[in-house]
């Protein structure tokens, strides 16, 4: 599609190099950066549906949770050594989650607007409640993931690069998708799904694939985060609507919906703010979160990139009418 501008390659290279060096440049903050990558996946995968396709999901955390549990169960029950079990766990997590999203997608993605949003909200909470009662998954007390066979420093480094890999793969996959027919098709669905159907677009197919892609990367992230935290709680970690679940939405909006860089930026800004200020709030964090959602949604729904774009439209490949006479039109 559109040829990417040079500065985008520079940006990607810059971030990539920095990401590789961070464990040695800022060794004390390695966990924070690991979570930054996780946040980027959250925001990007949410935006795939919410921003690019116009399907605002309140329950994408479902796939994160499925991933976390599936991976942990495989690790617990497979009897393999740590790394083999983890690899197998991540694979199963991704497959299971993708399968669930494909199955659900056929029905749930047929809903529009309010109904889709509330239905996904229900899905996320229902999953948390079911996990919270299911003995096999440790019920309400959750699951503990296996001990990493090695020192703390090594463990941090391992999970840093694991998250970085997931995030990098996710980013480039989405970037490639957005440049292809797929990206334009889901944009068309966002702008007018009835029209897209009337033009013969395979809307169900595109929507389902989009959801599966999101589910795939969320599940991998879920598997990694479960191990990173070392503990999976059904309502506060895996299917936590009030933290990860809304953060996804908030970060994507904050950065700018419907762009590839917006969610990345939003995740970075949100995560940084959170790391800097959250601890000063002593338990009032979630109150602040609620207030923040309201403020951003009401006063800043276009997000940072949307705002920049409004200010300098030409910079973003959006042409301003150069030919006001409308040449051919008056012919």
């Amino acid at each position: 599609m559109k040829r990417a501008p040079v500065y985008e390659y520079l940006l990607i290279t810059g971030i990539g190099v920095a990401a590789l060096l961070i464990p040695w440049l800022l060794p004390n903050f390695i966990t924070q950066f690991t979570f930054l990558w996780v946040m980027v996946v959250f925001a990007l995968t949410w935006d795939l549906l919410g921003g690019q396709m116009g399907y605002n999901s309140f329950g994408n955390v479902l796939f994160f949770g499925i991933g976390a549990y599936a991976c942990a169960v495989v690790q617990r029950d497979s009897g393999l050594d740590y790394f083999t079990a983890l690899a197998l766990g991540l694979l199963c997590a991704a497959l299971l989650s993708t399968a669930v999203s494909a199955l659900l997608g056929a029905g749930v993605l047929g809903m529009r607007g309010h109904y889709f949003a509330i239905c996904t909200l229900g899905l996320g909470v229902a999953a948390g409640e079911i996990a919270g009662g299911w003995e096999y998954l440790g019920a309400g007390s959750g699951m503990v993931t296996p001990q990493y066979p090695g020192g703390i420093g090594e463990r941090d480094l391992f999970y840093y690069f694991l998250s970085l890999t997931i995030t990098g793969t996710g980013f480039f996959t989405l970037r490639r998708l957005y440049q292809s027919r797929f990206g334009i098709a889901i944009n068309a669905i966002r702008d007018d799904e009835d029209k897209a159907e009337a033009m013969g677009l395979h809307t169900t197919r595109y929507k389902t694939v989009a959801w599966c892609v999101a589910a795939f990367f969320l599940a991998l992230t879920g598997g990694a985060v479960g191990n990173l935290i070392g503990f999976i709680d059904p309502r506060d970690v895996a299917f936590s609507g009030a933290t990860f679940g809304v953060w996804m939405i908030l970060m994507a909006i904050l950065g700018g919906k419907g762009t590839i860089w917006g969610p990345v930026l939003g995740a970075a800004v949100f995560h940084l703010t959170q790391e800097l200020f959250w601890n000063f709030l002593f338990g009032w964090q979630r109150v602040a979160l609620g207030a923040l959602i309201v403020l951003i949604v009401v006063f800043f729904p276009q997000g940072i990139l949307g705002w920049v774009r409004e200010a300098w439209p030409e910079r973003f490949g959006q042409c301003v009418d150069t030919d006001r006479q409308g040449g051919e039109e008056t012919r």
């Binding site: 027919r181 334009i184 098709a185 944009n187 068309a188 966002r190 702008d191 007018d192 009835d194 029209k195 897209a196 009337a198 033009m199 013969g200 677009l201 395979h202 419907g258 959006q318 042409c319």
Partner: peptide, 20 residues
């Protein structure tokens, strides 16, 4: 009249290629 409002005209056209 229905078009894809937030896409440019060329993209509107491209995504209208036959899907059969």
């Amino acid at each position: 009249t229905r078009i894809y409002g937030r896409m440019d005209c060329v993209h509107n056209m491209l995504i209208s290629t036959p899907h059969a």
